[in-house]
Amino acid sequence: MKKALLILSIMFMTMSYAQEIKQVPQISVNGEGKVKVVPDQVTILATIETKGNNAKDVKKQNDEKMEAVLRFIKKMNLDPADYKTQRVSLNPQYDYEKKKHNYNATQTIEILLKDLSKYDELMEGLVDEGINRIDNVIFQSSKLEQYQSEARKLAMKEAKLKAEDYVSVLGQKVGRAMTISDNSQTYYPQPIRYAAMKTMEVSDATAPRETLAVGEINITSNVSVSFILE
């Protein structure tokens, strides 16, 4: 009997405690923080693509062009840690009309350029030395973590300001935060005004010269916050 009374007593206390928690007045709001930054570096994905009837010759031509590209990059005095081969491929392609195999060789190099004043020179040189495809150009900031921290703080400030606006007409005050959830998306640096380059085919004879208009990038943070009302 005593055991049953003890169990009932614990259940009653648990239910009372749960009800007490549920009855705590609170407000839940979202906040967004946004920091606009002028990029100070750029990542370039550049590819050499070579086609032909003989696999060995196609690979050799592709390798020779990439060697020339790497020599040019070294002359640009880039840090060796700032460029690397991203992928290499040699694939057969069957021509059903001619009933024979052709071969397609590609090499892609990823370059991190930390001095944007060298951008035009680098892009022109890459094309001149054999690059015939620019796969991607991404402008970014070297101080990303610093700006992400600023964006998070701004998001929290906006959330609190929203909560204060809502309860200001109720004669209540915003108290301490009960829960905080980070809803930020993974940051993928993209320029705003820059004309984003999709995969672009170029030839040595008509190689376009890129112009630079980096604009700004947005670094954003989003939070959900529940505040106690006093």
Score class of each variant (00 low, 15 high):
residue 1 M to V: 09
residue 3 K to C: 08
residue 6 L to S: 06
residue 10 I to K: 04
residue 15 M to D: 04
residue 16 S to G: 15
residue 19 Q to F: 15
residue 20 E to Y: 09
residue 21 I to Q: 09
residue 24 V to H: 02
residue 26 Q to H: 11
residue 30 N to C: 02
residue 32 E to A: 07
residue 33 G to H: 01
residue 35 V to G: 01
residue 35 V to A: 00
residue 36 K to T: 13
residue 38 V to P: 00
residue 39 P to T: 03
residue 41 Q to D: 02
residue 42 V to R: 01
residue 47 T to N: 03
residue 47 T to Y: 04
residue 48 I to N: 10
residue 48 I to F: 08
residue 50 T to F: 00
residue 53 N to V: 02
residue 54 N to M: 06
residue 54 N to A: 07
residue 57 D to N: 07
residue 58 V to E: 07
residue 59 K to W: 09
residue 60 K to C: 01
residue 61 Q to E: 08
residue 62 N to E: 11
residue 64 E to F: 04
residue 64 E to G: 01
residue 66 M to P: 01
residue 66 M to E: 09
residue 67 E to M: 10
residue 77 N to Y: 08
residue 78 L to P: 09
residue 79 D to W: 09
residue 80 P to V: 06
residue 80 P to T: 09
residue 80 P to L: 02
residue 81 A to L: 13
residue 81 A to F: 07
residue 83 Y to Q: 03
residue 86 Q to H: 12
residue 88 V to S: 11
residue 89 S to K: 08
residue 92 P to V: 00
residue 93 Q to H: 05
residue 94 Y to C: 03
residue 94 Y to K: 08
residue 97 E to S: 05
residue 102 N to T: 01
residue 106 T to D: 02
residue 108 T to D: 06
residue 111 I to T: 07
residue 111 I to F: 06
residue 112 L to R: 13
residue 113 L to A: 04
residue 114 K to M: 08
residue 115 D to V: 08
residue 117 S to Q: 02
residue 119 Y to H: 02
residue 122 L to Q: 05
residue 123 M to G: 02
residue 126 L to F: 02
residue 127 V to D: 04
residue 129 E to F: 09
residue 141 S to V: 03
residue 142 S to H: 09
residue 144 L to D: 07
residue 145 E to W: 13
residue 147 Y to V: 00
residue 148 Q to W: 11
residue 149 S to R: 04
residue 150 E to R: 12
residue 151 A to I: 09
residue 151 A to E: 01
residue 153 K to A: 15
residue 153 K to M: 14
residue 156 M to V: 13
residue 156 M to S: 00
residue 161 L to T: 15
residue 163 A to G: 02
residue 167 V to M: 02
residue 169 V to W: 11
residue 170 L to F: 14
residue 170 L to G: 10
residue 171 G to C: 03
residue 172 Q to K: 13
residue 173 K to F: 00
residue 173 K to D: 01
residue 174 V to M: 01
residue 174 V to C: 00
residue 175 G to R: 06
residue 176 R to S: 14
residue 177 A to K: 11
residue 177 A to T: 11
residue 177 A to E: 15
residue 177 A to Q: 15
residue 179 T to R: 10
residue 180 I to A: 10
residue 183 N to P: 05
residue 185 Q to H: 07
residue 185 Q to P: 00
residue 187 Y to K: 02
residue 188 Y to W: 11
residue 195 A to G: 06
residue 196 A to P: 05
residue 196 A to D: 14
residue 198 K to C: 07
residue 199 T to S: 04
residue 200 M to G: 07
residue 203 S to W: 11
residue 204 D to E: 13
residue 208 P to F: 02
residue 210 E to F: 14
residue 210 E to I: 12
residue 210 E to R: 03
residue 212 L to S: 04
residue 215 G to K: 00
residue 219 I to F: 10
residue 220 T to I: 15
residue 223 V to C: 09
residue 225 V to A: 07
residue 227 F to W: 06
